[in-house]
């Protein structure tokens, strides 16, 4: 079965992103697929390369990136939500005349159409709140 996960929670602000990561691991371990993880609203902060949690705390970013590498996950940030919150890739940063991009490796920016497409293609959508 194909799952799509929608993540509304920013890391360290709510538990949603951490729960989504645990659920994603369980989905993959159960032999199901993840079509897309769509980060929406404050959830786009999960895709910032600049987060620097203390060493004795969870590093959600590197865990998402490891999971992406291991399972070729599609990690998509809502572009409109990301622009408002200052999560930009290099080309967006240059287009918007900002000093630098800060989007982490492994993530992509896309519109809500990509969520609609994932909803059409996936068997299940699970939302993780803020």
């Amino acid at each position: 079965m194909q799952f799509t996960l929608v993540v509304y929670g920013a890391p360290h602000a709510s538990e949603g992103a951490n729960t989504a990561l645990r659920f994603a691991r369980a989905v993959l371990a159960s032999g199901h697929g993840i079509y897309r993880v769509f980060f929406y609203g404050d959830g786009v902060h999960n895709g910032s390369a600049l987060v620097a949690p203390p060493q004795d705390e969870q590093d959600l970013l590197s865990q998402w990136q490891d999971l992406k590498i291991a399972h070729n996950l599609d990690l998509t940030l809502c572009i409109a939500a990301a622009q408002r919150r200052g999560v930009l890739n290099d080309s967006e940063a240059s287009r918007l005349e900002k000093p630098s991009g800060n989007m982490a490796d492994g993530f992509e920016l896309a519109g809500l159409g990509q969520l609609a497409e994932a909803a059409a293609v996936s068997d299940r959508i699970v939302t993780f709140g803020s």
Binding site: R25, S30, V126, G129
Partner: peptide, 21 residues
């Protein structure tokens, strides 16, 4: 339940609705 059972609950039900506000 654990996360694995959560996944199987998701396969047994549709739709899945989250209430967080």
């Amino acid at each position: 339940i654990d996360e694995t059972r959560w996944v199987s609950l998701c396969t047994e039900h549709n739709p899945i609705v989250s209430w967080f506000r």
